[in-house]
C-alpha cells in the first residue's frame, strides 16, 4: 500500500507531538553543534533540518553493546527483547545502509538479535534539508534505491508530503491531520529529493561497477596503500561511525555477584591492530592483517568491492561520517577511490 498525504507545517508539529505522547519516537536532535538520533521528548526536539548525525541509526537495532546470552550458575538463556519504536527523519543514505545491514544479518544464518529489533521498528525517512560538509551520497551506489523503510516525509512549500510504504507507515496517519496529497504536491516532493542529489560537496566520478573492479585490482599496489595509511592511528573511528559497518566482538562478563553474567557483543573495528590476530599458544601469535596499510585497504575493499555482489552495489552510502570522524583525515573514501580511478 503506497499512499501520499499532505500535512501543513503547523499540523505536522501536532502530528509529531501525538506520536511522541503514545509511542517511542527516535529522531535527529541537536547535541551542541552536531546532531544525534535520540528519543524525542517533545515535537520541538525534532530537527529535520539536520545535516548528518554523529552515529548512524543502526545503533537502534545493533546497539554498541548487546547482551546475547545471560547466564546464572548453570542456567542460561537468550535475551532477545525487541522494543517497538518509530525512527523518524532518517535520510535516504541511512535508509540504504539499514537495508544493507538487514540483508547481511539475515543472510545464511539469521541473526534475530538484530532482526527482532529491526522488525519492531518503523522507519520514516525525511528529505535532506542541510548538506553536510563531507557528503557524497549524490554519486555513490546510484543503482541502489533506498528501500525497506515504511514511509518518507518531504518538506515542500507550506508543509510536508508523507508517502507511506505499507501498513507500518500507514498506521501513523491517524496521529495527524493529513489530507490526500495532490499530484502537484507529490511532484514537488519528488523534485525536492531529485534536486538535492547534485549538491554534495564531494563527488565520485565513475559508476559503482567501474569503481568495484578497479579498486579490487589495486589491491597489490602496496606502496599506494602504505602512503595512504601512513597517518592512520588504527583507532577505528571510521568503522564506528559507518552505517554499514557491522563487525563485532563477543565477550563474557560477570556481574558483581560473580555467579551471573552475560555474553555480550560490542561494536568492533577492522582498523584496530588486533582485529585479525590469533594466539597460537606458547606466546606465539599470528596477525592476519598486521600492517596498518593492510587494514586500511581492507576497509576500502569492503566498502567499494567485496560486498557489491551480495548487496547489488557498494557497502558505502556516501554519508561522509568516516571522513569527518578521522583524526588525521585520511579515511575519506572519495579521496581514496578517486585517486585509484585517476591512476
Amino acid at each position: 500500500m503506497m499512499n501520499a498525504y499532505f500535512i501543513t507545517e503547523k499540523d505536522f508539529k501536532n502530528f509529531v507531538s501525538a506520536m511522541v505522547q503514545s509511542l517511542t519516537v527516535i529522531g535527529p536532535v541537536a547535541k551542541r553543534k552536531k546532531f544525534v538520533f535520540a528519543k524525542l521528548e517533545s515535537a520541538e526536539d525534532l530537527r529535520l533540518d539536520y545535516d548528518v548525525t554523529l552515529l548512524p541509526p543502526k545503533k537502534e537495532f545493533f546497539p554498541p553493546s548487546q547482551d546475547m546470552v545471560r547466564f546464572e550458575k548453570d542456567k542460561y538463556e537468550g535475551c532477545i527483547s525487541p522494543q517497538e519504536k518509530i525512527l523518524l527523519g532518517v535520510h535516504f543514505y541511512d535508509i540504504k545502509a539499514i537495508d544493507m545491514t538487514d540483508r547481511l544479518f539475515r543472510e545464511k544464518n539469521e541473526d534475530w538479535n538484530y532482526l527482532a529489533n529491526r522488525e519492531a521498528a518503523t522507519i520514516i525517512g525525511s528529505n535532506i534539508q542541510t548538506i553536510s560538509e563531507r557528503a557524497f551520497w549524490g554519486t555513490v551506489g546510484k543503482d541502489v534505491p533506498p528501500k525497506g523503510h515504511d514511509g518518507f516525509i518531504t518538506k515542500i512549500n507550506g508543509g510536508y508530503v508523507y508517502e507511506t510504504r505499507g501498513d507500518k507507515g500507514e498506521a501513523l496517519v491517524k496521529f495527524g491531520s493529513f489530507a490526500k496529497a495532490t499530484d502537484a504536491q507529490v511532484k514537488e516532493a519528488r523534485a525536492v529529493n531529485e534536486n538535492v542529489m547534485g549538491k554534495c560537496p564531494e563527488k565520485l566520478n565513475r559508476s559503482s561497477k567501474e569503481i568495484a573492479e578497479k579498486v579490487r585490482k589495486a589491491f597489490s599496489k602496496e606502496a599506494f596503500w602504505e602512503a595512504l595509511a601512513e597517518d592512520c592511528f588504527s583507532c577505528g573511528s571510521c568503522n564506528i561511525v559507518c552505517p554499514t559497518c557491522y563487525c563485532f566482538d563477543v565477550q563474557d562478563n560477570w556481574n558483581l555477584d560473580q555467579v551471573s553474567g552475560a555474553r555480550t557483543r560490542y561494536w568492533d573495528a577492522c582498523l584496530t591492530e588486533d582485529f585479525a590476530k590469533v594466539s597460537l599458544g606458547g606466546g606465539a601469535t599470528e596477525n592476519f592483517r598486521e600492517e596498518r596499510a593492510e587494514r586500511f585497504r581492507h576497509r576500502i575493499m569492503r566498502k567499494a568491492s567485496y560486498l557489491n555482489e551480495k548487496l547489488g552495489g557498494p557497502a558505502c552510502v556516501g554519508c561522509g561520517r568516516c571522513s569527518a570522524a578521522c583524526t588525521s583525515d585520511i579515511a575519506d573514501p572519495v579521496n581514496v577511490i578517486n585517486k585509484i580511478m585517476e591512476a
Binding site: 545464511k108 544464518n109 557491522y246 563487525c247 566482538d249 557483543r265 585479525a276 590469533v278 592476519f288
Partner: peptide, 23 residues
Amino acid sequence: ERRMKCGVGKCGHCQINDKYVCV
C-alpha cells in the same frame, strides 16, 4: 585458521578478502 569469533559469518574477524572462513 582464522579468528572465527562468531562462527556464523557476521562478526567480520575471520574475513579473507570477500570470504568468511567460518561459513
